[in-house]
Simulated scan of single mutants.
Amino acid sequence: MKLLDVGKIVAAQGLKGELRVYPESDFPERFLQPGVRWLQLPNTSHPQQFELLSGRSIPGKKLYIIKLAGIEDIHQAEALRGAKFLVDAGDRPSLKADEYHVADLVGLEVIIQSTGEAIGRVTEIYTAGNDLLEVTLNTQPQTVLENAPLEDTLKANPEILSEVATGSRKKKKKRSPKTAPSIFIPFVAEIVPVVDIKAGRIEIIPPPGLLEVNLADS
Rank of each mutant, 00 (worst) to 15 (best):
G17M: 02
E117L: 14
S168M: 13
S25T: 03
S25Y: 02
L15G: 00
F85D: 06
D98T: 14
E117M: 14
Q142S: 13
H46F: 05
G17I: 03
A165H: 07
L145K: 06
S176I: 10
Q76D: 03
V122N: 03
V106K: 09
Q142I: 10
D98Q: 14
P42L: 12
A11I: 05
F50S: 10
F31K: 08
A118K: 04
T166C: 00
L145W: 04
F85V: 07
I9F: 09
L15W: 03
R201F: 04
I183E: 07
L154S: 00
L145R: 04
K96Y: 08
G60P: 02
K173D: 07
G167R: 02
T179R: 15
L68C: 07
V213L: 15
D131K: 15
E99M: 14
E146F: 06
F85N: 02
I66F: 00
V106A: 02
I205Q: 12
P59E: 08
K198S: 06
L3D: 01
L154Q: 01
K155V: 07
D5W: 08
L145S: 02
P207I: 08
V10C: 08
E163K: 14
I202K: 07
I191V: 15
V106F: 00
W38H: 09
G107D: 03
A156I: 02
A12S: 14
I197Y: 14
E18Y: 14
Q140V: 11
P193Q: 00
A165F: 07
G107L: 09
